[in-house]
Design a protein around this nucleic acid. Structure first.
Lengths: 188, 188
DNA sequence: CTCCATTTGGAATGATCGTTCCATAATTGG
DNA sequence: CCAATTATGGAACGATCATTCCAAATGGAG
């Protein structure tokens, strides 16, 4: 076997995630993508197929990473409510970066089966992790026992999206922190 | 004066709003626009200038209309909390239609001065109307007096966006209604 | 050093983009 | 009926799109 240095597929995907997050699928050209990915055009098509498959790969990987970070934050707190608070705080701190999840959801709605498959898969996993912490919080007396854990998890996921939309619109960190605080209020 | 039947500018804008809402700016072609607007290509450029100006006009008019509907709903309830509830209920009922406000925010962030001008203008007006009802609710004992009215208004606006993102992602009406109910919970 | 798998980017392709030109159709006041 | 005005849509333009072809460069294995 002999070949030149193989490019880093993961690093390339990171570049694609940046471009797609900032400009959406339709707003990202192949040239913008190869520039940000640091690979040649030929490698892009050989490795990922076409622009749409690259987009799906980027959404998939972004979703996996983001899900991991949410879950890590959730588990970082001793009490359930602390984990949830940590998760929201991290979202506030990173809300200046556009979210490919929200972006792809709003650009394509529920019209692309490729994306739906990715999102239902990751959505289930994140919702489950949040639900577990909500139930912890209920057991620990920090969250109202009358709340339905699944509905509460969905509310928190929706408020993560809302913080990111607000951040994308230019809201400053104090305003975003206030949104997170108000969302937490609904759990008590 | 002699001319063929002049086309309905407002109806044409409605068509443009539909297309831009569903496909975004980059995803909407001039052909899709003239088809949905029911006018000729030449009329589009003569009346609106170019695609970007048409987009701004669509965002502006959509924002004005949407703001009016929010405020009407806000005023429809006797108590402040009833108005806020009515506003959220209307959002839930219409969340199957994509929102051009959220769409333009997420497609362009805060990078387009044209859009920023429209959004700060309409945002201020809507926030003011919501704040007034929040203060009503506080006076009437339905909303916690400790809450900052402006932060509460921002929270409600953010949750309107979150309901629409969830709706765009395919959530059913019951799930959306649950999001609205949880948002209201944060006010008590 | 040689070979060969692999990456690369310029050039080409055909499609579509936004936009403009222009000839035609339509409508109404005179 | 005529004239004036406006809307229309096909054709054309140059730019850019996604994608493919291909020749040149790369660098480790033998």
């Amino acid at each position: 076997m002999a070949r030149p240095r193989e490019f880093d597929t993961d690093a390339a995907l990171d570049g694609a995630i940046d471009v797609f997050s900032e400009h959406g699928f339709e707003g990202s050209s192949a040239q913008m993508l190869v520039d940000a990915m640091g690979i040649g055009r030929q490698s892009l098509y050989a490795t990922f197929g076409d622009k749409w498959q690259l987009y799906c790969a980027a959404v998939h990987r972004y979703g996996l990473d983001e899900c991991t970070r949410h879950v890590d934050a959730l588990r970082s707190g001793a009490r359930g409510i602390d984990g949830i608070d940590a998760m929201l705080r991290r979202v506030v701190e990173t809300a200046d970066q556009p979210c490919l999840g929200v972006g792809s959801t709003y650009e394509f709605g529920a019209s692309r089966p490729d994306l739906e498959k990715i999102k239902t898969l990751l959505g289930k996993s994140l919702r489950g992790a949040i639900m577990a912490r909500v139930q912890d919080g209920q057991r620990e007396g920090d969250i109202a026992p009358s709340l339905d854990a699944e509905a509460t998890a969905d509310f928190l996921i929706a408020n993560i999206a809302s913080i990111r939309v607000a951040g994308r619109g230019g809201a400053d960190r104090a305003a975003l922190a206030s949104l997170a605080e108000m969302a937490l209020r609904a759990l008590r």
